[in-house]
């Protein structure tokens, strides 16, 4: 975008004046100082904790590392985590696309309020996110008597964990797509529709290609968060071994059983997932920077 601006007709003729580098950037020593500060900060706060996970996981060698995954409880936790993400992520994907279509392609009143409400789960404490489902679906909650009568188990079972996960990842896709779709406007879709395309066809052939990288990126983050959610799931899970423990909860359990190597081994699985997410995301950004720009700004 800045490139487009510099080539615009209003650009002053910069070639005429030769400026010393020091007036448009900082002095070399300042530059390196700032770089050092930034890198030290990133290293201390981000890289070191990440390395700690792998270092602790491998503290007793690869044998102990793999033993952690041979446990039936660990495998049950992996299965449950995959199941929960397999439901929550597609749900939020469909919701996010629908919401951003309605919000970005149309003008209606109360839009700002709607966007704020969609954002709300993002700033709700995870613990509160769990608590609200207990208040709705717990035995003594809003629908408690009904659920008890019909023998339906929501919290302390998979549905509750899925609901809490959907809640905490609710804004992820919509948040990313709304600015992307807004930026791209409606002209292209309108043209397609005028040429006789159906609405669905226009979405698939015109809108989707424009947003696909943003979509993929948001789905990745949504997935990482869905698999890694701790606070909300902890409140609604009930911690039944082999049944309602997700991977992050399993990490906590192992940690509390003095089984630090196993705890960090399982944690390293989640950290590995985070690294893959970041790697894919970075590749996307390097390749399709422009497609993602609008979304990243509002993230």
């Amino acid at each position: 975008m800045s490139e487009a601006l510099t080539q615009g007709p209003l650009s002053p003729p910069t070639e005429a004046v030769r400026l010393p580098a020091s007036v448009v950037t900082e002095r070399r020593v300042v530059r390196w100082l700032l770089i050092a500060v930034a890198l030290a900060f990133l290293g201390l706060f981000l890289v070191l904790p990440l390395l700690t996970v792998f270092a602790q996981a491998l503290a007793k060698g690869w044998g102990a590392y793999f033993t952690a995954f041979a446990e039936p409880d660990a495998q049950a936790a992996i299965r449950l985590t995959l199941l929960v993400a397999a439901i929550a992520v597609p749900f939020n994907l469909v919701f996010g696309v629908a919401a951003s279509w309605a919000i970005a392609k149309f003008e209606f009143r109360g839009k700002n309020l709607l966007v704020t409400l969609i954002d709300l789960p993002f700033s709700v404490s995870p613990v509160v996110s769990g608590l609200i489902y207990v208040l709705v679906f717990g035995s003594r909650g809003l629908f408690g008597p009904f659920l008890v009568e019909h023998d339906i188990q929501i919290i302390f079972a998979v549905p509750g964990i899925v609901l809490a996960t959907i809640f905490v990842t609710f804004p992820f896709v919509a948040r990313q797509l709304i600015p992307l779709m807004q930026e791209q406007g409606t002209a292209e879709e309108e043209a397609a529709l005028t040429l006789g395309a159906s609405g669905w066809h226009a979405f698939r052939t015109v809108t989707l290609p424009n947003i696909r990288w943003g979509l993929l990126y948001s789905v990745l983050l949504c997935n990482a968060r869905a698999m890694g959610e701790f606070g909300a799931v902890s409140v609604v899970s009930g911690h039944i071994r082999g049944l309602t423990n997700t991977l992050p909860l399993h990490v906590e359990i192992l940690y509390n059983e003095y089984n630090f190597v196993a705890a960090f081994a399982v944690a390293s699985l989640l950290a590995g997932l985070a690294l893959v997410t970041l790697a894919v995301k970075s590749v996307l950004e390097w390749r399709y920077a422009d497609d993602l720009a609008a979304g990243a700004r509002r993230h």
Binding site: V134, F137, G138, S139, R140, G141, G144, L147, V148, Q153, I155, F156, G238, H239, I240, R241, T244, I253
Partner: peptide, 15 residues
């Protein structure tokens, strides 16, 4: 299922 005794009692109360 294991956890702090009070928290565990709470899960039983909540179903």
């Amino acid at each position: 299922a294991h956890g702090g005794s009070g928290a565990q009692a709470r899960t039983v109360i909540d179903g």
